[in-house]
Amino acid sequence: MITIENLTRRYGALTAVDDVTFTARPGRVTGFLGPNGAGKSTCMRVLVGLTPPSSGSATVLGRRFADLPDPGREVGVLLDASAQHAGRTGREVLTLAQRTMGLPRARVQEMLELVSLSDEEAGRRVRHYSLGMRQRLGIATALLGDPQVLVLDEPANGLDPAGIRWMRDLLRTYADRGGTVLLSSHLLHEIEVVADDLVVIGRGRIVAGGTKAELLARAGTHVGVRDREPLAAALTAAGHTAHPTGDDALATDADPAIVGRLALHAGVALHELRAADGAGLEEMFLELTADTQRETTPTRAGAGAAA
């Protein structure tokens, strides 16, 4: 369980994280989604106590991270796979974590097997690791203490498609056992296949949150229509949104039934009418985050921050 409440972090005039509130629940994978520089990493650093918040609070399992007696055994953290000493071997990196947590030595080998790093690879220095291998090592470090909460910042970066598939299965199994997973990404398609819940952040503010199903429902309806103008006008007149997508399609927040009726009245022929799926979510993601950029650029970014 991760609880973030009214969290704000300012750097001078810049508000990197602006009044952020959300929870990541046990048994679920929570996707933390936002473009680069949206405040995901800052939020996660505050959560694990590396960055002090300007205001608000972040707790894991009901406690501040610093109050956990042996954090590695309750919360697995991977913030940046490249943040490892280049002159240490992969096995040594794991051994240090294993010793810090006072775990049995066999645990290191178990984790190397779990993330599919061979003995030869584990004996190499991290300097010679690819980004994908560093991610695997980082995930091994995070899982070493058998924690019940996982905090992973962009863990899929640098993984090949098979690696991404592997990680997805791993996180799914983990959450199904009752674990809490908070996973960030700037790529929607990486997250939507594994996440149960989504939190979308743009310019430091939460712009959308909820279960994936809810957000998909909110993603609206996809309408294939050659003659777009009359239908868009009819939708807008009825109080719905209408955005052109692709060459001859509209995205709207109206139900398919309403769209069908309006199209009939307007005398417009449709060649497609369905609930928008992942593509709709992508559209929504881009729209939501673009909106926050437009809204916050002219005014001071931190103007709405809670004290």
């Binding site: 694990v48 490249s82 943040a83």
Partner: peptide, 17 residues
């Protein structure tokens, strides 16, 4: 090295004091 090699990210999350 905790800063230059950025191992502090691991060190200070395993031991947040």
């Amino acid at each position: 090295s905790e800063w230059s090699q950025r191992t502090g990210l691991t060190t200070f999350t395993l031991v947040p004091h």
